[in-house]
Amino acid sequence: MRIYVCVKHVPDTAANIKIVGDAAYDTEVKYVANPYDEYGVEEAVSLVEKNKKGEVIAVCVGDKGAANTLKAVMAMGVHRSILIKTEDQFPGSDITAKALCKAITDDGGADLIFMGKQSVDGEGMQTPYRLAAEMGLPVATGIVAFSHGGETVNVQREIDGGAKELITIKTPCVLGAAKGLNEPRFPKLPAILKAKKKEIKEMDLADMGLTDQGQCRLKSLEPVQERSNAKILEGSTREIVASLVQILKEEEKVI
């Protein structure tokens, strides 16, 4: 069984993002594997471990630095990687999906494809759907449980208020992982060292002969103004809660 996992190289969610120019940011920040993608990696790796056969291949559309993210997921047990190079952090989900599709197809084709349900930088939430459409495969995202039944897989996705949909999908299929699916492992030193020797096949997005429809363009980025210091309510607990209720009712009119 060959499982592909799509992984994005993204700024750490704790990183301070400084916007420069109209639609760019200071990229001198710490990058990590997109946290949602790690759930996909963990699921793929543990499935292959359980079956004692199969291969897990990570595919990433990203810049040179993304090799580090690929090494990190290879330390989690991914066997080898494909890096599709572009300098653009937001190439658009359309071209990204086309590139992922071509790389996966050229590499031999998938029995299963895992990815995160969204990236934490662009928060687009649609690359799984676009990849599935490109590949002509069924898709489900927001997956919190997975079991493999050969011709089909059974998954659960969380819907409103903690209710869950139980879904059966024919394989091959594309699955977008969410938190709750599993606990991604922390690789130990031997695994990290071993990952350094694993293969990363590189190619350039520009050389893949794909056309970008450019349907959705990032026009500008603006920093979000954080609130400034809170107004601290003083007094005894009773006085404080009384004034809070009064503020919320009369000034803010939110209750």
Binding site: P11, N16, Y25, E123, C216, V224
Partner: peptide
């Protein structure tokens, strides 16, 4: 829409 976990707001143009 939000980018970078709510740290920035992006304006996207659709064609």
């Amino acid at each position: 829409k939000s980018h970078f976990s709510g740290k920035a707001v992006a304006t996207l143009e659709m064609t």
